[in-house]
Amino acid sequence: MIEQRYKVAEVAQMLRESKEHIYRGLHRGWFVGAYKIGGGRTSDWRIPESAIEAYLERCQR
């Protein structure tokens, strides 16, 4: 089964956070398994569903 991957804006909406908060988390390693599509500074991120679930688990502790 292929795991769903989400864009930053989608994750921000799901978590009711700002896109800036999600970008900060990406750069700090909060979403393990997230990766960039393409190269360079303006490339898009993809965040696997499992990374979002793991993040939420850590936040609930």
Rank of each mutant, 00 (worst) to 15 (best):
residue 9 A to P: 06
residue 33 G to D: 01
residue 16 R to C: 06
residue 25 G to Y: 15
residue 42 T to F: 03
residue 57 E to I: 01
residue 24 R to S: 09
residue 59 C to Y: 10
residue 49 E to P: 03
residue 42 T to G: 03
residue 54 A to T: 13
residue 14 M to I: 00
residue 59 C to K: 15
residue 4 Q to S: 07
residue 33 G to N: 05
residue 56 L to I: 15
residue 46 R to Q: 01
residue 31 F to W: 05
residue 58 R to W: 11
residue 29 G to T: 09
residue 30 W to S: 01
residue 19 K to N: 12
residue 3 E to A: 07
residue 29 G to E: 11
residue 58 R to F: 06
residue 38 G to F: 06
residue 23 Y to L: 08
residue 26 L to V: 01
residue 34 A to H: 10
residue 54 A to G: 09
residue 52 I to W: 14
residue 17 E to P: 02
residue 40 G to R: 08
residue 38 G to A: 03
residue 8 V to Q: 01
residue 2 I to H: 10
residue 23 Y to R: 10
residue 15 L to I: 14
residue 24 R to P: 03
residue 50 S to N: 06
residue 28 R to K: 14
residue 31 F to A: 00
residue 12 A to V: 03
residue 36 K to W: 01
residue 37 I to F: 01
residue 11 V to K: 02
residue 15 L to N: 07
residue 60 Q to N: 13
residue 18 S to N: 11
residue 9 A to E: 13
residue 27 H to I: 12
residue 12 A to D: 05
residue 43 S to G: 13
residue 34 A to M: 09
residue 17 E to C: 10
residue 20 E to I: 09
residue 35 Y to R: 14
residue 13 Q to F: 04
residue 17 E to F: 12
residue 33 G to T: 14
residue 23 Y to G: 00
residue 17 E to I: 11
residue 55 Y to P: 12
residue 1 M to Y: 08
residue 18 S to L: 07
residue 40 G to L: 09
residue 21 H to Q: 04
residue 61 R to H: 09
residue 24 R to I: 06
residue 46 R to C: 00
residue 18 S to G: 14
residue 13 Q to V: 10
residue 36 K to F: 02
residue 21 H to E: 02
residue 20 E to C: 02
residue 27 H to A: 07
residue 22 I to M: 01
residue 58 R to V: 01
residue 47 I to Y: 14
residue 53 E to M: 06
residue 18 S to T: 15
residue 25 G to L: 13
residue 48 P to K: 08
residue 2 I to Q: 09
residue 13 Q to N: 13
residue 59 C to H: 08
residue 54 A to M: 11
residue 29 G to C: 06
residue 36 K to G: 01
residue 6 Y to R: 02
residue 45 W to M: 04
residue 15 L to P: 08
residue 1 M to N: 03
residue 53 E to W: 09
residue 27 H to L: 11
residue 11 V to Y: 03
residue 23 Y to N: 10
residue 2 I to W: 05
residue 9 A to T: 11
residue 29 G to L: 08
residue 49 E to R: 15
residue 57 E to M: 05
residue 39 G to Q: 12
residue 54 A to D: 15
residue 45 W to L: 03
residue 47 I to V: 13
residue 46 R to L: 00
residue 43 S to K: 08
residue 47 I to D: 13
residue 46 R to E: 00
residue 11 V to N: 01
residue 25 G to H: 14
residue 39 G to E: 15
residue 22 I to K: 03
residue 17 E to M: 14
residue 21 H to I: 08
residue 36 K to V: 03
residue 28 R to Q: 15
residue 3 E to W: 09
residue 57 E to F: 04
residue 54 A to L: 13
residue 60 Q to R: 14
residue 49 E to M: 12
residue 58 R to G: 05
residue 44 D to Q: 15
residue 1 M to Q: 06
residue 52 I to S: 10
residue 50 S to Y: 04
residue 35 Y to A: 11
residue 40 G to C: 05
residue 37 I to Q: 06
residue 61 R to P: 03
residue 16 R to A: 11
residue 26 L to P: 00
residue 58 R to H: 12
residue 38 G to M: 04
residue 49 E to T: 04
residue 41 R to I: 00
residue 42 T to W: 05
residue 54 A to H: 13
